[in-house]
Design a protein around this nucleic acid. Structure first.
Length: 424
RNA sequence: GUGGGUAUAGCUCAGCUGGUUAGAGCGCCAGGUUGUGGCCCUGGAGGUCGCCGGUUCGAAUCCGGUUACUCACCCCA
């Protein structure tokens, strides 16, 4: 069984679906190029410590979701569970920060997390993300919010919503955290199991619990907005001002928190109504402390990540995901023997001109070959009969209207031209 | 890690309260047209009924276990 089953939570992407990926990848590159982001490809695996330090020891990812292994040199390596820490590592290692700032980079590739699969969640999944490093300008926060929206629009996706919040910085967050704990502690016995846990480990998480009982208690909880330091407050209001100026619709959600330790100030999430329980198609935020945490100079930064499978799922749900499947320019029908050789010669000639040419490899009947040509959606069929070949000709049949004409096989350039023009 | 649902042909699925050769549609192959696709007709190939065990004269069907898939929780893209 294991021999013929792919590992849990992984996917094969083949004909019928891969075309959508190619289309999407092209759109991603277009949008990134318009915003001036360059691609950076990092390894699929990194030193385990990078993620432990970058994402945070107390996060679910680091605690129970990483694919970690020892290599033959007894180094602990981990298949990347996300793209930001590796990109920041590369930024520091390659000294990109020594050049002109900000540095704007994007990545696109597989990520790995050991979780139970469900709709829109896989153990190997693909993220497209980008990061702008070296500037604290709120306008870059806004770019990180707007760029994925541009991508969604370019794909034709609708029904998505932006939620945004600020979670403060090392100056103001600790005090707010204290306030939260102070508020929730008296209600501790009424909280759900996981919230009791959160209270000790990550009080901010209490805010996005969906359990009813917790929701009620939460109604009276202190809001982050009243505890921001002047700098964070100013930053957030500027982000909102830019969004307003650009006419971007968003929803303030002071309950929104993120799962990684590195976020500061702005955090946001884009959800799509088309998806199931895992309805976030993109999320991100600012992380002004991460570069320094990973051994670089203090460098403010902001970024986001989009779940590519989820985006495709949403598009498919809205029937926006249509794979364009063009057929061959020509299918050469032959009768075996001599005619097959001539068919092969002609096919190779035309293929060298960039035309898609098919022919039968199974020794099938004429009828079966015609049928095959039809199934493939071939624009034309070239019939290589012995009589015509002896005169240096072949029959060219237009599969749309059934019209046939003789073509001169002495002038293949001309034939290529005819087929090429019809393919437009 | 926890809970629910599902598992029959390449695909989508029938198969009622256990009964003998397990079906349909689509797809595939061949023929009807010894050199012509789509429509139609005829025929054919293709199934350890996920796996193991139990109940029974008899199990695709009932029971238990197991694996896989799937949805949801936790968490996340």
């Amino acid at each position: 069984m294991t021999l013929t089953n792919r590992p849990r939570g992984t996917n094969d992407v083949g004909p019928g679906e891969i075309e959508l990926w190619h289309q999407l990848e092209e759109k991603i590159r277009q949008v990134c190029s318009a915003f001036g982001y360059k691609e950076l490809r990092t390894p699929i695996f990194e030193h385990t410590e990078l993620f432990q330090r970058g994402i945070g020891e107390a996060t679910d990812i680091v605690e129970k979701e990483m694919y970690t292994f020892m290599d033959r040199g007894q180094r602990s390596l981990t298949l990347r569970p996300e793209g930001t820490a590796p990109l920041v590592r590369a930024f520091v290692e390659n000294r990109y920060g020594e050049g002109a700032l900000p540095v704007k980079l994007y990545y696109l590739g597989p990520m790995f997390r050991y979780e139970r699969p469900q709709a829109g969640r896989y153990r190997q999944f693909t993220q497209f993300g980008l990061e702008a490093l070296g500037s604290a300008d709120p306008l870059l926060d806004v770019e990180a919010i707007v760029l994925p929206l541009e991508l969604y629009k370019a794909c034709g996706l609708s029904g998505f919503q932006v939620e945004i919040n600020t979670i403060g910085c090392p100056v103001c967050r600790p005090a707010y955290r204290e306030e939260l704990v102070k508020y929730f502690e008296p209600h501790a016995d009424k909280l759900c199991g996981s919230c009791k846990n959160r209270l000790e480990r990550n009080p901010l998480r209490l805010l996005d619990c969906k359990v009813e009982g917790c929701q009620e208690i939460m109604a009276g909880a202190p809001s982050i907005t009243k505890h921001l330091c002047p700098e964070c407050e100013e930053h957030f209001s500027q982000v909102l001002a830019y969004l307003d100026a650009l006419g971007i619709e968003y929803k303030l959600n002071h309950r929104l928190v993120r799962g990684f330790d590195y976020y500061t100030k702005t955090v946001f999430e884009v959800t799509c109504s088309e998806l199931g329980a895992q309805n976030a198609v993109g999320a991100g935020g600012r992380y002004d402390g991460l570069v320094e945490e990973l051994g670089g100079k203090p460098t403010p930064a902001v970024g986001f990540a989009v779940g590519v499978e989820r985006l495709l799922l949403a598009l498919r749900g809205q029937e926006k995901a249509k794979a364009e499947t063009a057929g061959p320019d020509a299918y050469i029908v032959h009768f075996g023997g001599e005619t097959k050789q001539r068919a092969a010669q002609t096919a190779f000639f035309l293929r060298r001109r960039g035309l898609w040419v098919e022919l039968d490899y199974l020794g099938r009947s004429i009828k079966a070959q015609m049928k095959a040509a039809d199934r493939l959606g071939s624009r034309h069929v070239l019939i290589f009969g012995e009589d015509e070949l002896s005169r240096g000709e072949a029959v060219l049949r237009d599969m749309k209207d059934g019209q046939e004409q003789k073509v001169d096989l002495q002038d293949l350039e001309q034939l290529a031209k005819i087929l090429g023009e019809c393919g437009q």
